[in-house]
């Protein structure tokens, strides 16, 4: 095969796999930012914090990082509930969520990042399971399991979330609270309780994304910086509250970023990604897959 074509195909495939990781990171945000309208810019740093605990626990007990990530997800669910309770008590209830709430999550993000530096030091951490060194070859195309297995876990967890949102009463209530909390109250459902559960779920998803992140790449406390723009970009491009839109946007984003890195060098990749978001924001704020407000 033509080497350029092979490079292109490989770039697309690994971009899709990378998109799986991005989908995992962005799906939690699609719940908190998209559905609940809570601008949780601490989401990526929660993911990185989850990654650090995965490394810590996985190394100590010799467990698979993805398994640890799933096992610790309930803990992060509780953490999310605590975070939302504080947010609701201090800001949402008072109607101060715009400026002060934004500053609150910014501060939380900073506290977690610096807390990780103080706890673990600034150096990179990694935990490689055995399959991380296996690569399947399909003709000219390489499929590294290091990327494939986290992407599959991401798809599975997003699938479970989708089922939950479509098929259970609480899930439907989450979708409803995004549209009209007052109407929900008339159905004798407490919107604050529903939002608490939803926010807990979004932080639990950050835990799973953190496990996937550790398998894909080594992490350090500042890793989340590049993810902030990515996950918000994906979330906005995906049309905020829509999970299928979020997955599509994540794949698209992964491919574009990866092709840029392949053909122009990795140091340009963030500029393209973020530039794209700026463009989307400036031209089509409702997202590529969203409907006009």
């Amino acid at each position: 095969m033509d080497p350029d074509l092979s490079l292109l195909l490989n770039g697309i495939v690994s971009g899709l796999l990378l998109g799986g990781l991005y989908a995992a990171a962005a799906s939690g945000l699609a719940v908190s930012f998209g559905m609940l309208d809570i601008v949780n810019i601490a989401h990526p740093v929660l993911m990185v914090a989850a990654g650090f605990f995965v490394v810590l626990v996985g190394t100590a007990l010799g467990l698979d990082p993805l398994l640890v990530a799933v096992l610790q997800a309930p803990l992060f669910y509780v953490l999310g509930i605590g975070l939302y309770t504080a947010y609701n008590y201090f800001f949402e209830r008072r109607g101060d969520e715009a400026l002060q709430g934004l500053a609150f999550f910014f501060g939380v993000m900073f506290i977690i990042e610096v807390g990780l530096v103080l706890l673990f030091g600034p150096e990179q951490r990694f935990l490689d399971p055995d399959y991380a060194f296996v690569t399947w070859r399909l003709g000219e195309i390489d499929v590294p399991l290091r990327m494939l297995i986290p992407a599959l876990l991401a798809m599975a967890s997003i699938g479970a979330l989708y089922w939950f949102l479509q098929r259970t009463f609480t899930g439907l209530a989450i979708a409803a609270v995004a549209q009209d909390p007052e109407a929900l109250r008339l159905m004798a459902v407490d919107p604050v309780r529903i939002k608490r559960i939803a926010f807990g779920i979004s932080v639990a998803l950050a835990s799973i994304a953190g496990g996937a992140l550790v398998v894909v790449q080594p992490i350090d406390p500042s890793t989340h910086n590049v993810f902030i723009g990515r996950v918000f970009a994906i979330c906005i491009m995906g049309g905020m509250a829509s999970l299928p839109g979020c997955i599509l946007a994540a794949f698209l984003f992964g491919v574009v970023e990866n092709l840029t890195a392949t053909f122009y060098g990795p140091s340009w990749a963030p500029a393209v990604a973020f530039g794209w978001l700026l463009l989307v924001l400036a031209v089509r704020p409702q997202g590529l897959f969203g409907r006009a407000a």
Binding site: G229, F274, L277, L281, P285
Partner: peptide
């Protein structure tokens, strides 16, 4: 918030 996120992105670009 969209403006805030855009400024954050601008910084990275």
């Amino acid at each position: 918030v969209y403006f805030s996120i855009a400024t954050l992105c601008l910084s990275v670009v």
